[in-house]
Nucleic acid binder design. Structure first.
Lengths: 399, 399
DNA sequence: CTCCCTCAGTTTTACGTATAACGGCCTTGT
DNA sequence: ACAAGGCCGTTATACGTAAAACTGAGGGAG
């Protein structure tokens, strides 16, 4: 079934898989063409060259079109302006389409020394924030004929990845959402351009950041408006720049408006981690009557991301505390999970797709030698059901 | 880190093990060179022009060790038994380590025609089931010196991916969790080995399935034990083999035990989709008093996956129905989300990691020409809080 | 008429690796 | 003593592509 459908994917390489090999793919492996011209006007040759199942090469296309391989490369590479006649170019394209030619990526890479491929290093795939970042990066990459291969650092956010073994090809650059110092050093040693997401500047060629200091400011303002003054921090147990920024911004903002940071509990970035940390915070007091509002129990938990916040939600419920009546909870990221739980999470929405897009954009700029300015993307608090007015000590216990 | 591993394709002799390979993990990255290599004189190797910043090649190593490039390839490829003396081999390895040599993957691929790389096609990364599948595949692949590159089909489960443009290198095979027919045809046309996960047999070289018919049997048995007789199906709006299996198994099992499949609502595979579908099912009756148990409202919702089930949870809550007192909900997959919500989901746990591992294993078998038998992995119902006894019409409404 | 320039291609080369084909030694067997 | 092999390497080649260098033919300009 010669179902030939031209996929107009916009890029120049036609992706057709026509298998109608009725054409005379002239020359095969035998390079005997050294003598005179391959007579084009001769008898219709038998299909000789298609050896079983190997993919056609540029030479096959050249033979079919009656030109040399160099011409095929010129035409298909798009650089034939003024070097090849329009008719010849068209016949080359026709032959390529007919044979279902696709250039050998390995050979092209070997020749060019570049791959038009970026590696995206993310800490985990279980947080769909990074899936969205990837989507944004792929979108921009695709528009520039670039590819993105994803490397989920398997051991978690602090492990050293082996990017080169993962991407089974040479790389033009790396976009890293988080990297262990030693892996970063290895990368730098390799001389690869590196764009860091949500990381400190320095030791990389460009950064794309999300304005989490402002995000924390919005969180604190929101909670202060609701009357909260005693706040705890469910922090990520990760030594990473972003999380330091969050902690510092939270501390500074709370101090600036006269609220108290009661305590900070660190835990791994997962629902289970948030559950454990929030339990440690909430269970230390008010055991007798959970509905009481003891002085040493915070009325709001600010969590470093949505996974932790969902864990905090569970912890509160297990301890018999209602959210948001007894305790408010906030997250960061606004992943799908945030609206899947009940109550829905008040959280800081990060423009994940734009992060990925800006990261890829920055990498492209670096590769082209253009100067790149540090990107800082704005964030926005999304108030939902997990935050509410601060419970007043007297009003609650007596119905 | 240049973990050079002897690739033993175990062609026939197959005595691959015992390669006391050089575990040069974390070799001195500090030796970045700073011109380090004092090219040993006296060797036939001539100019070893270290051109500034380019990566060292096999020729550079050869020059440094005073041998030919062929010997370098022999030694580093592990095939030097009886062809190179132990002392020479060691000096080659030392030179490679010193220079930080890493073989050029593109050149190797071009030469060998194989890449030891598999493509894993998954429908979406927002469902962390597939992240776990990926982990399983990577684990097995790594043990065989294979790589796995991930291709998230961006347009959802039915879109046609372009795997070849995605994986920026040639591929040895494909493991596909779901593919549109035209993409599958393209793959077959390319002659690539293909392992399908949770798909129909036929048109591929091997399949790895999860016993979802049995899973549905367990779900129905569980609900029947709790007394449920009127059941609705929140189905995936996807024309895919697995989902057909689920639907048929549910229908057959319900009929076999005398229960009724009240209706089926199809929706996209997401929390929002589940919310919409379950709302359509639950809102059609009992508007006046939600706590009533009208005859046309199901007492249990069986959902095609956990995302849908979480959406159903939300729908019930929004309609004022309690889970599980008023309505029970079940999912499939047992992803992290299942225990993040409240109540926790009763669901069918699928061995995601084993699926990925078995898929990679099957692909390796196909590549080596060994026969592969279809794999079918067992599943297990995990009863949690989202299912409870069927509400009896009289007992509930009057406090 | 010659010189130079453009057109329309072709030859040739290089990318880095793996391996087939080959060749000097040194040990054996007969 | 001399061919027959092990050792221990080397030289040469092919993989498919991109692009630089080269080749003619035709056509004004001087």
């Amino acid at each position: 079934m010669p179902e030939q459908h031209a996929s107009a994917t916009g890029n120049r390489g036609g992706d057709d898989h026509g298998t109608g090999n009725s054409s005379d793919t002239g020359n095969g492996r035998g390079d005997g063409d050294g003598n005179g011209t391959a007579n084009s006007g001769g008898a219709p040759g038998r299909d000789t060259a298609n050896r079983g199942r190997t993919r056609p090469t540029g030479h096959d296309v050249a033979g079919a079109a009656g030109v040399s391989q160099a011409t095929v490369s010129l035409v298909l590479g798009g650089k034939w302006q003024g070097r090849v006649s329009a008719r010849t170019a068209e016949s080359v394209r026709a032959a390529a389409r007919e044979l279902g030619y696709r250039p050998n990526l390995a050979a092209r890479t070997l020749r060019l020394g570049r791959t038009r491929t970026a590696l995206l290093v993310v800490p985990a795939l279980t947080n769909d924030f990074f899936a969205t970042v990837h989507r944004g990066a792929v979108e921009v990459a695709g528009a520039h004929d670039f590819g993105v291969v994803l490397y989920p650092s398997p051991e978690g956010i602090t492990a050293a990845p082996d990017p080169f073994a993962s991407a089974r090809t040479a790389l033009d650059g790396v976009i890293a959402s988080s990297m262990a110092p030693e892996a970063l050093a290895a990368l730098r040693g390799e001389g690869l351009p590196l764009v860091m997401l949500d990381s400190d500047e320095g030791a990389c060629d460009a950064t794309v950041n999300v304005d989490l200091a402002d995000g924390m400011r919005q969180v604190v303002a929101h909670l202060r408006e609701l009357g909260h003054r005693r706040i705890a921090h469910v922090a990520a147990d990760v030594d990473s720049w972003t999380f330091e920024v969050r902690a510092r911004a939270l501390r500074d903002r709370l101090r600036a408006c006269g609220a108290t940071l009661l305590r900070t509990e660190r835990s791994p970035l997962s629902v289970a981690g948030g559950l454990a940390a929030a339990t440690r915070i909430l269970a230390t007091a008010g055991k007798a009557g959970a509905a009481d509002v003891p002085e040493d129990r915070p009325t709001a938990l600010v969590c470093d991301d949505d996974l932790l916040a969902v864990g905090a939600l569970k912890a509160a419920r297990r301890l018999g505390l209602r959210v948001p009546q007894d305790v408010s909870v906030t997250g960061i990221d606004d992943v799908a999970l945030a609206t899947a739980v009940e109550p829905e999470l008040t959280t800081v929405r990060l423009p994940a797709e734009r992060v990925g897009a800006a990261g890829m954009q920055a990498l492209l700029s670096v590769l082209e030698g253009r100067p790149v300015e540090a990107v800082r993307l704005p964030v926005r608090l999304v108030a939902r059901g997990s935050t509410g007015p601060c419970p007043s000590p007297g009003l609650h216990g007596s119905p």
